[in-house]
Each structure stands twice: as structure tokens, then as C-alpha cells.
């Protein structure tokens, strides 16, 4: 497989045609913020945080699902991109009920960390204060849809890794929400194996363990690349890479 060389933010990098620009950036310790991406899952290009400017292309493209070509000139650190990223976090913050002070993943939250990273000192967008269903019928877990950022990691991990496809998205637009089976109480789902993968991959406090109180829950995601490498390559990697 030929090696492709190009630059990201002026830094010369190299990678393979089959690797996304995001993967290559990370191999070279270039930080590109992401939210919907998770190592081990397919990419959907939905959160738009990893958008890049590519010389000669008028459209901004997501690093997670764009592949390199020789001598490509990629920028991820322009003022414009930084501004857009901040607005995206702003929109997400306004869209749900993100009261960090009373959240079990306070200080362990990807959205919170992103807010710090982009310097979100206040949200100009109007808070929507949604009134979505909180479901605590599962014996071990809770879903609070008001904290969901609709990254669909849970949908993907349940479909792609566990194979149960309990979760899917219902409705559309601003009314989208994650539903179990026939939009029924999670505890009554017959397809759920209670494996807990969805809870671990959730970047925020939407899917959480029962019994944890404010700031108590940490999420571990290294299991995913571990399982997926084992499954696809029959290799059990000792050190799984933790991204966040």
C-alpha cells in the first residue's frame, strides 16, 4: 500500500489511503476535536467538530470520514474553524439540559471537556430546556434523553459490536431521540442484553449506571478497539488506546 504524504496545519504527515485524515492526525499527535467519532465504531460525520479546510476545496470536510490524497494541504486550526467549533458546542449546550453541577459524569464528560477546549464562556443560543423522557426502568442503567447529544454512538455500538440493535433514532430534526425497541421502557426490552456498552461509549451523562451520584461515574472506552481488533484481526492488543 503506497504511503501518502501531505500536511496538516503545516506539519508534514504521512499515512495510507485507507486511513482517515483523523486517524493520521492522531498518529502525528495533532489534536482534532471530535464527538460522534469513537475508535472501533463506524463514522457518521454528524457532529461536524472535525471539519477541516482543504486547499482547493470550497466545502469544509469532516476529518473522520475524509481520506487523504498526495500533497493535500489540510488545516484544522484556522480562526474560522475554531469559531464554528465553538458554535457547535454552544448549539449542543443549548439543545439539552446540561446541568453539570448535578450530573453523574461531571468532570468526566466529553461535552464539558470540549466546552473548555473551545473556550465556551457562555452560550448565546437560546436554551431549549427540552422535556424528554428519563427512563430508569432498566435494573442497572438509566437513560436521560435530555442530556443526549445524538452522537449515535450507542446506536452504533449496539448494532455493530453487540449486534442487538436495541437502540435507534426516532422522529427527526430537533425532535430526534434515542429509543429502545418500540420506544418502550428500556427495562422491558427483550433485545437488550444488558451488556452496558452503550453506557460506556456515551460521551455525556445521557446513558449512566444506576447508583452513581454527582461526578462519580467514569466511562471507559478502551474496550472497543480491543474487541474490534480481536474480532477483525484475531489480535488481542494489550494496550488499547484511550482517546479522551
Amino acid at each position: 500500500m503506497p504511503v501518502i504524504t501531505f500536511t496538516i496545519n503545516g506539519v508534514p504527515v504521512s499515512g495510507q489511503q485507507s486511513e482517515s485524515i483523523l486517524e493520521i492526525a492522531r498518529q502525528h499527535d495533532i489534536r482534532i476535536p471530535t464527538l460522534c467519532h469513537l475508535d472501533g465504531l463506524s463514522d457518521v460525520g454528524a457532529c461536524r467538530l472535525c471539519l477541516m479546510e482543504i486547499e482547493g476545496t470550497s466545502k469544509l470536510l469532516p476529518a473522520c470520514s475524509t481520506y487523504p490524497s498526495e500533497n493535500m494541504v489540510v488545516r484544522t486550526d484556522t480562526d474560522k474553524l475554531k469559531r464554528y467549533r465553538r458554535t457547535i458546542i454552544e448549539l449542543l449546550a443549548a439543545e439539552g439540559n446540561h446541568q453539570c453541577a448535578v450530573c453523574v459524569v461531571n468532570n468526566n464528560c466529553e461535552l464539558q471537556n470540549l466546552a473548555y477546549e473551545v473556550g465556551l464562556e457562555h452560550v448565546r443560543a437560546q436554551y431549549l430546556f427540552p422535556k424528554k423522557e428519563l427512563d430508569a426502568t432498566h435494573p442497572d442503567y438509566i437513560i436521560d434523553r435530555n442530556r443526549c447529544v445524538l452522537c449515535t454512538r450507542c446506536v452504533r455500538v449496539c448494532h455493530e459490536v453487540e449486534g442487538a440493535h436495541v437502540w435507534d433514532i426516532a422522529n427527526r430534526g430537533i425532535n430526534c431521540e434515542i429509543v429502545a425497541d418500540m420506544n418502550q421502557p428500556w427495562g422491558t426490552s427483550e433485545s437488550c442484553t444488558s451488556c452496558g456498552k452503550c453506557v460506556l461509549v456515551c460521551p455525556v451523562g445521557a446513558l449512566i449506571e444506576k447508583g452513581a451520584t454527582v461526578s462519580e461515574m467514569e466511562k471507559h472506552r478502551a474496550f472497543l478497539p480491543y474487541i474490534m481488533t480481536a474480532r477483525t484481526k484475531q489480535e488481542w492488543i494489550a494496550r488499547a488506546i484511550e482517546e479522551d
Binding site: A170, A180, M182, N183
Partner: peptide
Amino acid sequence: LPLSRVYGVATF
């Protein structure tokens, strides 16, 4: 098909 897929499509 998974139940949630059908529900998701019907509500989309």
C-alpha cells in the same frame, strides 16, 4: 428487522 429500526423509520 430490529424493532427500533422499524419504529425509527415510521417516525421519520
